[in-house]
Design a protein around this nucleic acid. Structure first.
Length: 469
RNA sequence: GUCACCAUCGUCUAUCCGGUUAGGACAGCGGCCUCUCAAGCCGCCAAGACGAGUUCAAAUCUCGUUGGUGACGCCA
């Protein structure tokens, strides 16, 4: 197993989505586990639907996830001649033949077969007509008349197909372009692939490709078909059911390490372990323990993983990553110790970067712009609350230095000297500072705001208390 | 229509080749902690689709049923 070569081969007809990302991840992990190569190939032979911007987007998402590839990206559109030479080889060896049947004629055959309850397939009309190249002639593969094609799937185990189920498939279109299965086989072989992990929807393609490998006399790689990812309620993941592109998760402030971890655990397991570092995944992912049944993507559990990684991130990195989201909240981005302080105060209270940035808001706006949550203001801006705020306002005005420790001490001594409970004093103070009953420890909040801003918020709250009366 | 794949708590899964009070995680519920909200810790709830067969013993092996999904292109 020393020369493992895997690949990810998306077609650039859309952004990288969850299923594709997981397929890419599994291939990447397998290659990294065995110290092999992971290649990237863009299947852009469908010129109508393929777009350069999607290729760019897919590559960007791969980088965001940290899935690096070896060597240059291969584009199928550059390799038409190569595919054609393999088709010619098949023609020369008698494994393929020209066919003059029109698509309409073939469609009629299929319709007839379907109507008679048989499998719709090409009936081999041109098989022995010994046609040569000509206008409108495609090339078909000559299948063996009988036999079974068997392969041992890494995920599903042995899968057998009777050749009777198959067709003399087209391998080169009338316009000279190769068909999908032809191009894939040529590419997978010339790229030296040893293991192919792909979506479950390719299971029916596999025997077709194996027949091609056999006709060409090429070694057959190992296949692994992972089931598709379902959305909530076992529904197929579609736009309606929250199918999101990787790029959207990035925009929403979710962490790539969380997505990698979550995706890895969807359809693969390593005992009871839930949290994996990238190195652990590489160490443990050897192509076994792949689950053959389809799995639902659970946003809630994914969210939990995000929160976990958010808390685990080193402070400087967290600050760096949240900064763009703070900016898009329309807030001035703090730097240095101020950013660190905010992260420490709120990272346990957010699930993702966007949410974290949002938590910063009350502390980054000016007192005048602070909004009170009505319910909390009504409840805590009482006459007694106003009294505490007035008294504390005086205490804090005189407090130097205005540090976390000093503030905490002041708060506690006020409570003790007046025979109160912290619980009686904290709510109005908290509401005055945050606008609602949430957030970090009071002394941390005040230290962050500084004396002037703290006093401004007290003053504003006192005014609000008077209004409540 | 034909063929194929799949089937353990609500969800992700463990239980490698038959013997477990069917384990863990997320969610939910309860508690502890506590100035709030979180986080953290502790506890509770919760599953082998159905029916046969093989066997001393089946979630595990076999067959069938049901349900779900995929595929049947000169798309990829």
């Amino acid at each position: 197993m020393s020369d493992v070569v895997t690949r990810f081969a998306p077609s650039p007809t859309g952004h990288l989505h969850l299923g594709g990302a997981r397929t890419a991840l599994f291939n990447w992990l397998l290659a990294r586990h065995y110290g092999g190569r992971f290649c990237l190939r863009i299947e852009d032979t469908d010129t109508l639907r393929s777009k350069q911007e999607y290729t760019t987007s897919i590559l960007a998402s791969m980088r965001w996830l940290g899935l690096d590839w070896d060597g240059d990206v291969l584009y199928q559109s550059d390799r038409t001649e190569l595919y054609s030479s393999y088709v010619d080889q098949l023609l020369a060896s008698g494994h393929a033949y020209y066919c003059s049947c029109t698509p309409e004629e073939v469609e009629a055959m299929r319709a007839k077969a379907r109507a008679e309850g048989r499998k719709p397939r090409y009936d081999g009309h041109c098989r022995d007509r010994h046609l040569g190249p000509g206008k409108g002639h495609c090339v078909r593969l000559r299948l063996p008349d009988t036999g079974r094609i068997v392969f041992d799937d890494m995920v599903k185990g042995p899968i057998a197909t009777d050749v009777q189920e198959l067709d003399d498939m087209v391998i080169r279109r009338a316009d000279g372009m190769p068909t999908y299965n032809m191009a894939v086989v040529v590419d997978d072989h010339t790229m030296g692939l040893t293991h192919i992990i792909r979506g479950d929807d390719h299971v029916p393609n596999t025997p077709k490709q194996i027949v091609l490998y056999q006709a060409l006399g090429l070694p057959i790689p190992r296949f692994g078909h992972v089931p598709m990812i379902l959305g909530k309620d076992k529904q197929k993941l579609s736009k309606r059911h929250g199918a999101k592109a990787v790029i959207e998760y990035e925009k929403d402030g979710l962490l790539p390490e969380a997505l990698v971890n979550y995706l890895a655990r969807l359809g693969w397991s390593h005992g009871d372990q839930e949290i994996f570092t990238l190195d652990e995944l590489i160490k443990d992912f050897d192509g076994s323990n792949l689950n053959p049944s389809a799995a639902c993507f659970d946003d809630v559990k994914f969210s939990w993983l995000n929160a976990h990684y958010l808390r685990a991130l080193p402070l400087d990195q967290l600050g760096q990553r949240v900064a763009p989201f703070v900016a898009s909240e329309g807030l001035l981005v703090p730097t240095g110790e101020r950013m660190d302080a905010l992260c420490v105060m709120f990272r346990e209270r957010a699930q993702d970067l966007k949410g974290l940035a949002h938590c910063f808001r009350p502390l980054l706006v000016e007192a005048s712009a602070l909004d009170y949550v009505e319910k909390d203001a009504k409840k805590h801006f009482t006459p007694a609350g106003a009294q505490h705020l007035r008294a504390l306002s005086q205490c804090f005005a005189a407090l130097t230095p205005f540090t976390k420790e000093a503030i905490d001490e002041q708060l506690n001594s006020y409570v003790a000297q007046n025979g109160l409970k912290f619980k009686e004093v904290a709510p109005p103070v908290r509401t005055a500072l945050m606008g609602f009953m949430g957030g970090s420890h009071l002394h941390e909040i005040m230290a962050f705001l500084g004396k002037e801003e703290t006093l401004a918020r007290f003053a504003k709250a006192i005014a609000a208390c008077d209004q409540e009366r």
